[in-house]
């Protein structure tokens, strides 16, 4: 009788194509975000996150069209992020069918964007994405970065998470830039620290390589949801295998 922990496959999309592609049995087009989203919907994913990494703002129309098509064929929640700069971007994405919009860099330059959009559209659809790195000064502190982990902001991660929650964010998507792409597992220490520091849900992201990493994200990291890309895309594990493993580990999962 409880709330299930969520498993969220993430699609990185550039100019309408899923980057790196997806290795599913029988897939017709490994780069088609609509077909891939539908596959994940059928496979039992709890949500889908669509990260638009298209560099040019002018090519965003493709993104809106794709979001519209995914939303009309996928009946689980859809979060869209990447390049969200203004209230108008958020409105367009929600109108296209996104259930939640993820704000990253723009929240750093203009924290009021989070407040304004939460007031206008409701906290339930505003996700703040945080890219963090551990400081190498032995302090155990983490700092917020932008530009794929290249630019430090000087902002301490836990304080930032609390500020964003106070501004009305409904959820935090926490990515460890130290772990992203490593397959070494989530950074459990910062995931736990942020999950304990805020009352809103936290999604762990960055570094998952095995199913035990998912378990650790929930149990040790205290995450409410886990995001994964490559382990699912490359067919290393199916969503069903991940869910079976989590259930075996005593985690409450929707099956």
């Amino acid at each position: 009788m409880s709330l299930a922990k969520r498993i969220i496959p993430c699609l990185d999309v550039d100019q309408g194509r899923v980057v790196k592609g997806v290795n599913f049995v029988g897939i017709r087009d490994a780069g088609d975000p609509i077909e891939i989203a539908r596959r994940y919907n059928d496979a039992g994913a709890d949500e889908i996150t669509f990260l638009d990494i298209t560099a040019s703002h002018e090519q965003r129309d493709t993104t809106y069209r794709i979001v519209e098509q995914i939303a009309s064929q996928v009946f689980i929640p859809l979060t869209v992020g990447g390049g969200v700069r203004a209230v108008t971007d958020i409105r367009r994405l929600l109108n296209a069918g996104a259930d939640k919009v993820s704000i990253n860099t723009a929240a750093i330059f203009n924290p009021d964007l989070v407040r304004e959009s939460a007031e206008r559209f409701g906290s339930q659809c505003i996700v703040v994405a945080m890219d963090v790195k551990a400081l190498d000064d032995g302090s155990g502190r983490y700092e917020l970065f932008t530009h794929g982990g290249r630019k430090p902001t000087g902002i301490e991660a836990i304080e930032w998470a609390q500020k964003m929650a106070a501004f009305g964010a409904g959820e935090i998507l926490l990515t460890s830039m130290d772990r992203d792409g490593t397959k070494d597992g989530y950074d459990l220490s910062i995931t736990r620290a942020i999950s304990d520091a805020v009352d809103i849900p936290v999604i762990a992201s960055g570094g998952v390589g095995t199913l035990d990493h998912l378990v650790a994200g929930f149990i040790e990291g205290g995450a409410d949801a886990v995001l994964a890309a490559s382990i699912f895309h490359f067919g290393t594990y199916t969503v069903a295998e991940a869910k079976a493993h989590l259930v075996k580990s005593g985690i409450s999962i929707r099956q």
Partner: peptide, 23 residues
């Protein structure tokens, strides 16, 4: 409730977001 917790003392996040069983 503020600082919402479950019967086992675990922290329950708000918004209540995700898949919950319906009895």
């Amino acid at each position: 409730p503020k600082s919402h917790r479950g019967a086992d003392g675990s922290k329950l996040k708000v918004p209540h977001m995700g898949w919950n069983q319906v009895t």
